[in-house]
Structures are given as C-alpha cells and as structure tokens.
Simulated scan of single mutants.
Amino acid sequence: MPFAPLVAVPLAACLTAILIVLLKPILQRYALARPNARSSHSVPTPQGAGIAIVLAILATCGLAAALAKPMPNAMEALVLAHGTLLLAVIGAVDDIRPLPASLRLGLQTLVVAGLVMSVEGRLFPAIPLPAERAFAVLAGVWFVNLTNFMDGLDWMTVSALVPVTAALMLLGFIGDLSPLPTLVSASLLGALIGFAPFNRPVARLFLGDVGSLPIGLLVAWLLYRLALQGGLAAAILLPLYYLADATLTLLRRAMKGEKVWQAHRSHYYQRATTNGRSVMEVVACVFLLNIALAALAGTTLLWPSWLVTVAALAAGTCLVAFMLRRFSTMRGETIR
C-alpha cells in the first residue's frame, strides 16, 4: 500500500466532514452535552462527532484493504476494527446514559486484551510473555481512558493527536512503521482534520466518548506497534504530554483522597484556562509542544544510539515539565 496513506488523509477528512454535516441535526436533538463539573463550556452543545470519525476511519481502511492484495496483518486488522467499533458503542451508550465505572473499565480491558493477543512480537524478551502482555493491557486501558480525560477542551484532541498521527504516518514512509499502522495513522489524521473545523473554539460540536475511547485505542495500538518495531523511545516521546498531564493529575487527586473516577477540572490544561489563558493559547501551546516531541521522537529513530535516545528523552521531559509548570501558573506570574 505505497500510496494508500496519501489518499487516506483527504478521503478520511472528507468522509468525516460529510458525515458530521449529515449527523449533526440528530446529535443536536438527542446527544446534547450539558455543562458539568468537568466542562469548559457553559451552554448545551451536541456531542457524538466520534461516530463520524470512527466510520470514516473504518471506511477508508476498508477500501484500502479491499484494494490491497494480499492484505497485510489481516487478522490483527479485523481485531482492531471490531475493538474500535465495540469501544465506540460503549462510548455512545455512556454519552447518552452513563455506565458504571466498573462495567466500562471491564469492557475496555476485554477489548484491549483481545487486541494485545492479536499482535505478534516482544518488547522485553527477558521477562515472561504473560507479564509483558499484562503490562501492555494495563498501559492500553490507561491510554484509552487518558485520551478520554484529555478531551475536555475545544481542539485539545486535535492539537494533541494531529502531530502524533502525522509523525506516525511519516515514520511509515521511511520504513520505521509497517504498512497497516501507517494506513491507520493516515486515516486517523485525516478524520481529525475533517473534525477540526466543527470543534474549533468556540466548539459547535464535541467528540464525545463515542470518539475519544476508540481514538485512544487506535493511538495506543499505533504506539505499541511502533515500540515493537524498535521505536520504544519514540513511542514514549510522542504522547509524553498526554501521559504526563493525565497521570500526574490522577496521582495528585488520589493523594488528596479524591474520587478519581468522578468528573473534575484539575488537569493542567484545564487549570491553564482557570489561570487566565485563553483556549486558543492553550491548544496552540500543546500543538507546538507535540510537534517538538515528534521531532525528538524522529531523532531517536534516525540516529539510534543510546546517547541520542537519552538526550531526546531528557529534552522531551524538560519541555513537558516546563509546559505543565506554565499551565499551573497564573498568567503574568513568573515561572520559577
């Protein structure tokens, strides 16, 4: 599929935009997101654009698969497609009538476990295979949920994941990612671009759990595949801001004895708006940060030495730490 990713980007973008236009009247009527403790909006806004994104990705990848002879990693692709659909259904139900946290987490774990079992390869051959897969499932479930947690601001998912998916697609072109992940990353990139005009601040439409959960699964799988192909450092650097913001926020809330599964507005990007920064300023900072992290990830693959890898990880950590510190500081206050 040498040219499929190049076609997948505009195709997925167009399909997403068309489906959103067709679905928006229905979402406006039946899927309004009303402001709650987590919300950054003050008026009811339709959610559920994730339906269009998931359908566009599956249609784009399905068309490419139909044209490819033979289709690479066919069984893995089928498991990924079914897992994506299942998480979309779970998210859609949760958007309309919230599910118990235990049920939601259990279903997510089953989906991620099935996908991990379908992927061949080892990350850490020195440890037992069951232990490695258990770690992969845990990491996958966390990434699915943190993607949902981080979708709490207009354009946040777009600004964070467009650089990540674009970087993954480019890595596929230079041979650091196999054809199937390259195609999926290109389709997801196109779908996010198609969604972007509708979610631009002030958003007219939200992603919803129907979108954030399957998107989290797809990105987690893409990063796992990159790590399995020798790009572990790159797979850490690409989502490093997402990982740091969500994980540190969870730990901080747990240490305070708060109920971590309840809605809140204490993520660093949310605190940034509370501290006087505009939504556009916050998402622009996240976008530029993720471009920098993508460049650092690329250096670890172009120059695969331990010195470059350590330097890139250190630089990425410093950039993320600076951004988190900036977001948690009142506008106009000196950062120390």
Rank of each mutant, 00 (worst) to 15 (best):
255 M>R: 15
251 L>R: 10
249 T>W: 14
260 V>S: 11
264 H>A: 02
239 P>M: 07
276 G>L: 14
258 E>R: 13
273 T>S: 13
240 L>W: 00
237 L>A: 00
253 R>K: 08
244 A>D: 03
256 K>N: 06
241 Y>W: 10
257 G>V: 00
262 Q>W: 01
273 T>F: 05
269 Y>P: 07
256 K>D: 14
241 Y>M: 07
249 T>R: 14
247 T>N: 05
260 V>L: 09
249 T>H: 15
258 E>H: 13
263 A>M: 12
237 L>Q: 00
269 Y>Q: 06
266 S>Y: 02
276 G>H: 11
268 Y>Q: 03
263 A>G: 10
237 L>S: 02
276 G>I: 09
255 M>L: 15
265 R>Y: 08
271 R>S: 12
243 L>F: 12
240 L>K: 01
266 S>G: 06
274 T>Y: 08
239 P>K: 02
237 L>K: 00
245 D>S: 09
257 G>P: 02
255 M>P: 00
242 Y>H: 13
257 G>N: 09
253 R>E: 15
261 W>N: 15
270 Q>K: 02
237 L>E: 00
258 E>Y: 10
247 T>H: 09
242 Y>F: 14
254 A>E: 05
250 L>H: 06
246 A>E: 06
252 R>W: 14
256 K>P: 01
261 W>P: 03
252 R>S: 15
241 Y>G: 02
272 A>Q: 01
260 V>M: 12
261 W>R: 12
265 R>K: 10
238 L>P: 04
266 S>K: 10
240 L>D: 02
250 L>T: 08
